[in-house]
Design a protein around this nucleic acid. Sequence first.
DNA 1: CCTTTGACTCACT
DNA 2: CAGTGAGCCAAAG
Length: 127
Amino acid sequence: MATRKSSEKPTAILPSGKKDSSFFEQVYDVARQIPRGRVTSYGAIAAYLGTKMSARMVGWAMNGAFGQKDVPAHRVVNRNGMLSGKMHFATPTRMEELLKKEKIRVVDDTIVDFEKKFWDPAEELSI
DNA sequence: CCTTTGACTCACT
DNA sequence: CAGTGAGCCAAAG
């Protein structure tokens, strides 16, 4: 039984907001649960949250998550396994380096065997 | 309050 | 088979 309800309170979390049950926080929770050496896609997280239509929200949440929370944004890539968000890191190569530390092969800004390392929150977290 | 953007995804051409 | 376009939801300005 899914205790996740998409009808949360649309309160701001970024400015001054330390704790708010917003869409962002849900993304942080899932992303943080990503095991080391595994990766997931924005769509997977979005689907878990119920907004599978718009994975953009997940990426945007990461924008605020990375640097504020201990959210491994480098473990989250697009559905192609490509490091689309690497450009948003301190350095465009930072994300790739982090993934390599996770024993993840990254070639041409794309994760090798992405499907094998793919971590689905809906299955692992038993939605 | 309304407008624009945004680290995506699917579909059509 | 590859590229471009539109769609989607939510938050910041």
